[in-house]
Amino acid sequence: MTTIRPFVCEDLFRFNNVNLDPLTETYGLPFYMQYLARWPEYFQTCESAGGRIMGYIMGKAEGGGEKWHGHVTALTVAPEFRRLGLAGKLMNNLEQISEQKKCFFVDLFVRVSNKVAVNMYRKLGYEVYRTVLEYYSGDVDEDAYDMRKALSRDKDKKSMIPLKRPVRPDELD
């Protein structure tokens, strides 16, 4: 009961019911437009039968060699449309696109405190690959989990073997 379709600029005028959520960051226009211009297929939205935006996912493909992977930049669902499996649907969509692009894995960052999200990603097959210290800045900086899921091209799931030690944001590649 959801229409998944490409996110369009016009949606920026009416995504407030999603973005007024405190954990959903509203970025400057260049940020969205960069994704729309460069990875339009990776930016998808869900629309309700009543025409409201239910949520959206923003992603990209990057990296070289065996690190060529799909990345989830933002995934959010409006409160009234939670617990319907939308996030899973959007993630699945992004994984399929990444498969098409012959990526090795998909990764994402999530706040360590956001247990609901971490559990959801686990259910979708993601595992914590490493912890990134103080990745989120705020009144108190917060660590992030870098979670990963291997795609079919990474047959041995090498990309998912967890790192033993946490890394600092400047060590990220």
Binding site: C9, E10, M33, Q34, L36, A37, R38
Partner: peptide, 16 residues
């Protein structure tokens, strides 16, 4: 950027 990446559909969108 839309020209550079060949996202021609997005050009209409951006202009509007």
């Amino acid at each position: 950027a839309a020209y550079k990446y060949g996202s021609f559909n997005k050009i209409f969108e951006f202009v509007r």
